[in-house]
Simulated scan of single mutants.
Amino acid sequence: MKTYERAFKVSAVKLSYEREKGQLACLARELGISSDNLYKWRKDFEKFGTRSFPGIGHPNLTTEQAVIRDLERKIKDSKITLEILKRGTKYVSQGKISAKNFIENNKSEFSIAKMLSVLEVSETTYYRTKKQELTNTESRVILLKQEITSIYYEFKRRYGCFKITRELQNRGFKIKNSSVKKYMRILGLRRKIKRKFKVTTDSFHNHYVVPNLLNREFTVNVPAKVWASDITYIQTAKGFLYLTIVMDLFDRKIIGWNLSSNMSTKETTLPAWEMAVSNRKIDKELVFHSDRGVQYANKLFTNSLDSNELVKRSMSRRENHADNAVCESFFTHFKAELLVGNKLLSRKQMKIDVHEYIENWYNKKRRHSSIGYMTIEEFDRLHFI
């Protein structure tokens, strides 16, 4: 059963209020959801307001129920605080080591952070006292956990165990992926989860299409030999934006892109192509691969490509997304790392965030499994581009 993020549901409901009642079925089709879902979400939103759609395992609560639950949590927290004080006060008065021992002996029942707060023991004092009694192996594990946590948040929760392992190795740590995976599980660190998103492609048109020359040969040994392109939609607080990319399969760099408010060729594929050509010179035969969307098949765009005799066009087979898997993969990571779990942004802020993601994160800092977990800049330096 397909699930939807809370932000998406709220946005869908708000969009529905801007439409006439008879247009709700049309809006549902535009959003890729059923009319029943949209009507149900509207009903829930009207009943619970900002408390709607709390997620699996979290029931909708009325204002009165939420107040009661909050009071119950405060009572429970007060009981825990009282119990820690009753048991631990005498140990704190006996010195740092005694306080540390009490915390260690009771960490299965109470969280360390809670005990430190209630007993007014500083975190620095606790860990310094604890570290003085640790073996070299134990000290190394603590350091590794701290470094893993630091990398995880430095890269905005986008890295899983493989990329964190490579980052640690680059920083001088000798560690295997299995160990990083274990420590991440212990620390409760999980990268942002990928979700499938609807693809925006209109391949049913009368324009001329070309065969699939690329034929899923996604590994390329020289730059400017194969470029791939695609378009996806991005939901904002006020409607949709459309992101067009051009990727060089040699180093997987996004060499051309454009963000637009409509799907016209002049606002999507044409400016992305022009940016790619200005960023990377075409000095030998180039295959330009895309899907069969009208933005790639119409005369305005094809004339621009055909004006360069070195460019050969290639298109995926109809409704076969695997033929352009590299771009599909980029959009999957893009939406998982930038959009999933975040609130809907204004169009202006989304444009800023997309520029930051592509130019400063993806093209410079992100580690890519397709090029040996190197960054694009590291890979390009290695291959003398």
Rank of each mutant, 00 (worst) to 15 (best):
D291M: 02
R313C: 04
E217F: 05
T149I: 06
M350Q: 09
L344S: 09
N37Y: 10
R252F: 06
W361H: 11
R166F: 14
N206M: 09
S111V: 04
A276H: 03
L189E: 02
K100H: 00
K74Y: 00
E377I: 14
N206E: 13
K299W: 10
F288E: 02
L15Q: 15
T375Y: 00
Y373L: 10
I33V: 15
A12G: 06
A272R: 08
L259N: 02
N308F: 00
A325D: 05
R191G: 12
T3L: 13
S178K: 15
S35R: 15
S178F: 09
S34V: 01
R347K: 15
L31F: 06
F301E: 05
A336V: 06
N206S: 15
S52H: 02
S261A: 13
P271S: 05
S307M: 08
S260P: 01
M315D: 04
N37R: 09
N105Y: 01
T149R: 11
I164E: 02
M263R: 08
E377P: 00
E328L: 05
K196D: 08
E217I: 05
V246W: 08
K130H: 04
K86V: 08
G95Y: 00
N324R: 07
K47C: 10
P223I: 04
F110H: 00
T219A: 08
R347P: 01
G32W: 02
S316K: 06
I254R: 04
G160C: 05
Y4Q: 06
L15C: 10
T63A: 15
N279K: 12
L338C: 06
R366M: 02
G372V: 05
T302L: 09
E356V: 07
G372P: 07
I255Y: 03
I151H: 03
F204S: 15
G22H: 11
A276S: 03
L213A: 08
E30F: 01
A272S: 08
M275S: 04
K196N: 13
N308Y: 00
S11I: 00
M374H: 09
I56D: 08
Q132R: 14
D353Y: 09
H289N: 03
F288T: 01
Y39I: 09
V277M: 13
E274I: 10
F331G: 03
V222C: 11
K299Y: 12
A99P: 00
R42K: 14
T125L: 14
N105S: 11
K174F: 11
V340W: 09
K181W: 12
R128F: 04
S139D: 10
E30K: 12
L31Q: 06
H355M: 14
L345M: 14
T219H: 08
T332H: 12
T50R: 13
R19H: 10
E154H: 10
I371N: 06
R128M: 07
L310Y: 03
T50G: 07
V220W: 04
K281G: 01
A28F: 01
T268H: 05
S229M: 03
Y296Q: 05
G49A: 11
K335C: 03
I80L: 15
H205W: 01
Y233P: 03
S261F: 07
A99F: 00
E319H: 12
R166Y: 15
